[in-house]
Design a protein around this nucleic acid. Structure first.
Lengths: 141, 141
DNA sequence: ACTTTCGCAACTCCTTAAGTTACGAACAAA
DNA sequence: TTTGTTCGTAACTTAAGGAGTTGCGAAAGT
């Protein structure tokens, strides 16, 4: 699979779970549908569980379930739960010998933070319900 | 070196060249200052040359030079010259079997494009001259 | 000619994400 | 309580991309 599939996988899965909240889905089912494998699914969904978006149960009739209604889960919630950063590279700042470099980096970081904030703002304007959810895809008819 | 050093290297180098436009700088000089090596420098600066931001000359007293005044080179020019994309992953769209996935991807791409536009807008508000340039760092005194 | 410098190809090295295997823990049903 | 299902997690392998490196040809000044 390609780069950055975590967010795709997470959103895709949540959208499907939103369409039928009555039953749980197992990692295997999800993996089959997403074209990946159960361990990868558990890794990604595990982060969403940690963030309180999903619950999981082990054993017979276990699996994954939304922790709250899909219209109360925004895309930003998912993005933040993954603790990635699409715009700002996850690199810790190194000491800079050179003044130009310090000045430059300050400016760039400033801009990137602003852009990241924009991203989160936009993501928070859409919920999982609107994407795959309870009233699916009416605007496509 | 870490992720995303191309943009850093490009901006850093341009800023320094802006401080003394009278002479050319060789790949080796630049590499030494940036803590990398000449081939990497040429790879990155080559893209800037292709975009018309720099010129290069071979042979004795050759090297790199700004193609236009540093106050006419915005950070966005540099970003675009590198043909990277910080926010949108460079992955070509795959065919999607699943309607939810199509709908989802449409929405996400829409948001990412908007964010990318924001990034470019912010970057275009700062020039190389302002960062390391002709009147260096007055605001730090 | 000789030296400097870029241009570029080809390769190695390193890091990161994804995929895979394996096994233990929890839990339900028989 | 035994069995089978499912998650949790560790450890490994595989794949891709970026940076670093080597080498050499082309261009251009001395």
């Amino acid at each position: 699979m390609k780069r950055n599939s975590r967010l795709s996988l997470a959103l895709h899965t949540l959208s499907h779970m939103a369409q039928d909240t009555s039953r749980t889905q197992t990692s295997s089912e999800i993996a089959d549908h997403a074209g990946t494998n159960p361990v990868v699914v558990r890794r990604v969904l595990g982060r969403l569980r940690k963030a309180g978006l999903l619950t999981s149960e082990r054993g017979h009739s276990g699996g994954w379930r939304l922790a709250r209604p899909s219209h109360e889960i925004s895309l930003a919630d998912v993005y933040l739960a993954l603790e990635e950063s699409l715009v700002a590279p996850r690199t810790e700042p190194e000491p800079h010998s050179c003044q130009v470099e310090r000045h430059l980096e300050g400016r760039v970081i400033e801009i990137l933070n602003e852009v990241e904030a924009t991203l989160i703002d936009r993501l928070s304007n859409t919920t999982i319900a609107e994407i795959g959810g309870d009233k699916p895809l009416l605007e496509n008819l």
